[in-house]
């Protein structure tokens, strides 16, 4: 409960923990509530940090979640640096320490990808590696007790009301950002492999198609196919992103609820400590599993994009 000032209500505490540090544009004429209760009106469009959830909401699309992006970037750099160092110093002699650990991950990714993806593509395996390790690291931030890093950030910034979420994958922007990228790659590879016409045919001539004798039936069937296939296609990135987000968000939420127990009293605080430990242990499984699922599904989608249906149409 380090971040709350003692008198903060449970609802405020939870809401505060679920708000990202948002840097965005507030329009001219916007009424801002100041910390001391006064109100001020902005004279022109202003890029600033949101002081409340309402402000963050009012910023609309033109806003950045500095905490999600920052942690995501930091973890990406950490991984990239580690991998690069290992790749540079690696030798084909007996691997030791960090190298053998990284090779273990590489081997795991490589065998998983080659089980699922049978086409020739230099992009897919590195992408699977990136997704698995990066998502895992972002999920791993969940295991830090919910108040530690925000407390540090608040002390450093001097703002006791600073919003600071440390788990990037509890931000739908992050998970959807990745899944939409995967989706665009999927469409890109699909068109590259089958041609634009092949891609359109896949969307419209599937699953129902009338034989040439009854060609006029296709006039009805093609829109139906298109509808079905488009829904199925769109569902892929949405489900991919939301699955990860939902799991991590729920896990984070339970950590926050458990953290609430610490303020209630000694006995419940101890129970809370025990619960937090138990949930964290269980969560190790969840974060690994979610990272793995994201990786496998991405690879499966890539394989689907490369698979050519050998049906005569």
């Amino acid at each position: 409960m380090a971040s709350s000032e003692g008198t903060v209500s449970a609802t405020d505490y939870i809401q505060h923990h679920l708000q990202n540090m948002t840097y965005g544009k507030l329009p001219a004429g916007y009424h801002r509530h100041q910390a001391d209760g006064t109100m001020s009106v902005l004279e022109q469009d202003t890029w600033t940090l949101a002081h409340s959830s309402a402000e963050a909401k009012d910023m609309g699309f033109m806003a950045l979640h500095l905490d999600s992006l920052g942690w995501g970037l930091f973890l990406a750099l950490l991984l990239g640096f580690t991998f690069r160092r290992v790749a540079k110093t690696a030798s084909s002699d007996t691997p030791r320490g960090l190298q053998s650990f990284v090779e273990l991950i590489f081997d795991f990714i490589n065998s998983t990808v080659s089980d699922i993806f049978h086409h020739k593509n230099r992009f897919v395996a590195p992408m699977a590696l990136t997704i698995f390790t990066w998502v895992f690291m972002m999920n791993l931030m969940d295991l830090f007790p919910v108040d530690w890093l925000p407390f540090v950030a608040q002390k450093i910034s001097g703002d006791s009301h600073l919003f600071f979420k440390v788990v990037p994958t509890t931000d739908p922007n992050v998970t959807l950002g990745m899944s939409i990228t995967v989706f665009l790659l999927m469409i890109g590879f699909s068109i590259k492999e089958k041609g634009a016409w092949g891609f359109i045919k896949e969307l419209t001539c599937h699953p129902f198609f009338a034989p040439p004798k009854l060609w006029y039936l296709n006039i009805i069937l093609v829109p139906i196919n298109f509808l079905l296939e488009t829904v199925a296609l769109i569902a892929k990135p949405i489900s991919l992103g939301l699955r990860l987000f939902g799991n991590m968000y729920a896990g984070e939420m339970i950590f926050i609820l458990i953290a609430l127990l610490f303020s209630v009293g000694l006995v419940l605080g101890l129970v809370g400590g025990l619960l937090q430990w138990a949930w964290a242990v269980f969560h190790i499984l969840v974060i690994t599993l979610q990272a793995f699922i994201f990786m496998v599904l991405t690879t499966v989608y890539m394989a689907m994009a490369h698979d050519i249906h050998d049906e005569e149409h």
Binding site: G24, K57, A63, L69, L73, N173, V174, G177, I180
Partner: peptide, 12 residues
């Protein structure tokens, strides 16, 4: 909220 973070994350 869905915002520019989405694009930032995609680029990263």
């Amino acid at each position: 909220n869905i915002n520019l973070t989405l694009i930032g994350q995609s680029l990263t």
